[in-house]
Design a protein around this nucleic acid. Sequence first.
DNA 1: GTGAAAGCGCTAACAG
DNA 2: CTGTTAGCGCTTTCAC
Lengths: 359, 359
Amino acid sequence: MKPTLQTIADELGVSRSTVSNAYSRPDQLSPDLRDKIMATARRLGYAGPHPGARSLRTGTVGAIGVLFTDDLHTAFTDPFAVQFLAGLASAAQRHNTGLLLLPLSAQNEETAAAMVQNAVVDGFCAYCVPDWHDAWAAVEARGLPMVTGEHRDGGGLFVGIDEVAATRAAGEHLIRLGHRRIAVISDWLKADRDNHPIILGNPDDVPYYVSRERLRGYAEAFSTAGVPFDEMITVNAAGNMRSDGAAAAAYALDRVDRPTAIVALTDLLALGVLDALAQRGLAAGRDISVIGFDDIPDAAVSGLTTVRQPAADRGRIAGELLLDPESRPPTSQVVLPTELIVRASTGPLAPSSLSLRRS
Amino acid sequence: MKPTLQTIADELGVSRSTVSNAYSRPDQLSPDLRDKIMATARRLGYAGPHPGARSLRTGTVGAIGVLFTDDLHTAFTDPFAVQFLAGLASAAQRHNTGLLLLPLSAQNEETAAAMVQNAVVDGFCAYCVPDWHDAWAAVEARGLPMVTGEHRDGGGLFVGIDEVAATRAAGEHLIRLGHRRIAVISDWLKADRDNHPIILGNPDDVPYYVSRERLRGYAEAFSTAGVPFDEMITVNAAGNMRSDGAAAAAYALDRVDRPTAIVALTDLLALGVLDALAQRGLAAGRDISVIGFDDIPDAAVSGLTTVRQPAADRGRIAGELLLDPESRPPTSQVVLPTELIVRASTGPLAPSSLSLRRS
DNA sequence: GTGAAAGCGCTAACAG
DNA sequence: CTGTTAGCGCTTTCAC
């Protein structure tokens, strides 16, 4: 039988609460007694109050649930996700809190919801969770504090960026450079996970918040310049991997009316687009302009024009909001700044493209 | 006030246990009643049994604690760690279990131990935790199942590789090629986190299991060939990052009696060594031989000779052992195979090096 | 099928 | 400073 507070108390002939105090409120009893308690605890192999029992009593656990994609491998390959998590972890650590990764199966929404229901946590942090997911409902039902960067009206706290404004600025940059025939590449433009061009009636049809909003920003910039939504070339990517970016870009590049610019909704995909260009002997920024999103370290290395967002801050602030109610702003909506970083991968419309455009 | 089982029971005039059964044992009551219960639960905003309370009663939580480095950023930059975690997560998911990341502060061992003590989990998985860490003791004290790949005699379950045999084989390869003046680079050769050459009396002095064992393997191979331990050039790396590998390699390369081979105890460091070679116009495998460890994807790309280990399997099996007691082998010691992968970065001792050796 | 009783191990008033 | 009392919200025999 495992020792409990009572075991120690009985052994010493004191009360259970005294032993409890020895651990949680050392100032409530004489140092002598405390030492004696700790000594017998050690002797009996008692490791301290049972965390589960304590948490039932105090109502706090010391863990926050992170709704996460099924595919940890891909998630950890994404520098944005890693920075976000690192930021979240730094806040968590400051509050002596762990991160409960909840890898939600995209196949089996039922188990995903069950994981959320059974998670022993103080709150939830969700991102990269397409919003049709049942898990959303489960999180809301739990009634715990929740923070997300992807669901601005979802009841919980919001820490994120103005996705629409960010890509609108990027789109305007492209417009200023003269581009009008533009392809957009992203995963989650459709619910399926394949690389292929798609016809999209409307940005609203996109099932995933981030992709949808970013697409909206571009759509706004372009339509303001006279390029209607349905003239944009949209290609769905299988996932958010560099190779997917290259594969998806192929559908845009290998067509007669090749676009003069390709925007990817993440840097990882944009780097793949650069790969596809290189493979075809095309020069980014001269033959074809490319824009990404995130400003991951490799973006600078590759001279990728992109939108910088404060990944680590998003995580850190999300954590603070969850763990430190004092810090909660009245609005509960923290919108962090983004910045368009112009590098070599965008340039003015090339004459060759112009002539092609007339053909 | 948040609704509980009792709230629902009172509302319907049934007993608490009936409502409990409605959730956990649907076969114990009539479908009608169950539906009615679920309906009022929904109506009252009851999300299902409180996970913490349930776990106190049943003794199972649905989470395993992963003792993790403080520095998530670096951890997730290491493909080995990512693959390991992905493997662990796959097993966890199969058992409907989450991963509680416990980022242990290396500075503050006290808080680190406290995190372990307070973790609401069913078991622990530890790796990348230097063994002088207080957290070890805390884990053992908890008395929960624990699995590690780094502490073969530590009481818990072991899933790992034969580190010594792995590097011994790599060392023998180097010896066969004629190398005798050899440098070893690794983080955690000393407890400090700086790049600098060190004098090591003995592999036993190394404070971290993995580094120690791998160093032992090399020491065995070399001493068998007549190269005593104290003739090996040992360089401590600040961390397990590519740039650290390059920085540490500098100390080996920029000395008069330059070694003819450099072994790094991880691929990430070895890739840094290759960077350092390139920077000095030296050719890996011709001028200087280099060996890594892990066989991460980039190793193949760079033609790095290395030791392949089954990272994802280590994680997956660790998870199974923890979560599925049935699967536990009698010994509780699972040793997975490794394989020396010879690529272009190792080659026979170059004549130029030989002459240099005599000088 | 359903309910009553007995805790899981702990903490937080409060009284002594 | 120490002990008593009263649960936290749930599951699980075991009778009915």
